Amino acid sequence: MAQSVKVRVPGTIANCGPGFDAVGMAGTIYNYLELTLTEQPGVYIEVKGEGSGTIPDNEHNIAYQAVQAVFRKVGAEPCGVILRMENSIPLARGLGSSAAAIVAGLTAANALTGSNLSSEELLEMATQIEGHPDNVAPALFGGATISVAELGKVRCLRIDPAAIFTMVVAVPEFGLSTKAARQVLPKTVPHRDAVFNVGRAAMLVGALCTGNLAYLRYVLDDRLHQPYRQRLIPGMQRVFAAAVAQGALGAVISGAGPCLVAFTQHAPAAVGEAMVHAFAENGVKAHYLLLDLDRSGAQIIEEDNT
């Protein structure tokens, strides 16, 4: 008989300004994945929503690759696999769509093979597939996460911010691959720029832990990646300024971009409209999303073992 499980995984905002490749947050936008193991051999993959017609429906599908990674890890050999994806997270926008697919595949396959892999093992597998932990960690655990990786080992500290805020995400109509966004980064940076980021990343985490979000006004600047990626996102600084003018605490590139996200505790719709208008003034069509912090991470929402 078929076994199936359905999981929900949040989109994520990585870097959060100075926390390059280390800090991430989960947001209330979700992808759903249903995995079914059948007695009939073969692979069937269906994609609905974001990425329909674009995401591979064969062995190159990254969620399927994550499923297969679990099967290999635990020694499972199912006859057939049915994978159904329902996506709301925009692709190639810096909101962790690939991380969500990876985490969804790992979580679903682990559930159907007896949940033998720990969360820490799933995190390490997800990081190996994705290449860095800043998106996969919050997708897996929810909340805000700080991650470090060395020699294949990943350490992640999950925190629940002590104050409530809204993440206003301006979503441009154009996409930007992580590979292209990384190609513009320098191989080395000045010592003063590294020091600049260390202090701000530390204060960012402190502000989240204590709930003193007023400090976000001073800590969201970055010198390791945003100045170099600015050329790829027309009007970036104007969008940042428009958000702050409407009361936002600050704004950053979401992941590798091109989405820009502002953090606010007041008038999020006004902030979003201002950001979209600023993009339009620079010839870029965009819309905005209002996201709260997802505190659950990857969740099994349906399970059928009959």
Rank of each mutant, 00 (worst) to 15 (best):
V171L: 08
G75A: 05
R8V: 10
F165S: 05
A22W: 00
A180S: 14
H132I: 10
A278G: 02
L35G: 01
L213K: 04
A63G: 10
G17M: 01
D160L: 15
H191K: 04
Y44I: 14
L33H: 02
E303K: 07
A26D: 06
D294M: 02
T188P: 06
L157Q: 08
Y30P: 13
G27E: 04
G53C: 10
L291E: 11
D221M: 06
S177R: 04
F279G: 00
V271M: 05
V261P: 09
G272I: 02
L140W: 06
G11D: 01
R200K: 09
L216P: 09
V7Q: 08
I13L: 08
T210V: 14
L185S: 13
I102Y: 11
A76P: 08
Y288N: 05
G11N: 01
A144R: 03
A108W: 01
V261T: 15
Q265M: 11
L33G: 03
A101S: 09
Y44R: 13
M85F: 10
A243L: 12
R223C: 11
I62C: 06
N116R: 14
L140M: 07
A280P: 07
V47F: 15
L106H: 11
Q237G: 07
I233W: 05
V198Q: 14
L213V: 11
M236W: 07
S177V: 02
F263R: 00
S88N: 15
A108C: 10
C16E: 11
L95S: 14
M203D: 06
R182C: 01
R295Q: 05
C79Y: 12
Q40S: 14
E130G: 03
S296G: 09
A100V: 07
M236C: 12
D21A: 13
G152R: 01
G297D: 01
D304V: 09
G247T: 14
V74K: 07
T38E: 05
K179Q: 15
T38H: 02
I159R: 13
G11K: 00
E50C: 05
S4N: 12
R229A: 10
V284Y: 09
L112W: 00
N282Y: 12
Y30W: 14
G42K: 11
K6S: 07
T210A: 08
L204M: 12
K48L: 14
V184K: 01
V43C: 09
F279V: 03
A280L: 08
G283Y: 04
L293Y: 05
R231Y: 08
K6C: 08
R72Y: 12
R8W: 08
C79V: 12
L123V: 13
S296A: 11
L157R: 13
A256F: 00
L37P: 10
A99L: 03
F240K: 08
A194T: 15
I300K: 01
D221K: 11
D294A: 06
G131T: 11
L95A: 15
K6M: 14
S115N: 13
N110A: 02
T166W: 12
N135C: 00
F240L: 11
N305D: 05
A242F: 15
H225Y: 02
I13Q: 03
C209A: 13
I159A: 04
Q183M: 09
V5H: 03
R8M: 14
N135T: 02
P268Y: 00
L213H: 12
C156Q: 04
L83F: 06
P138Q: 02
A170N: 10
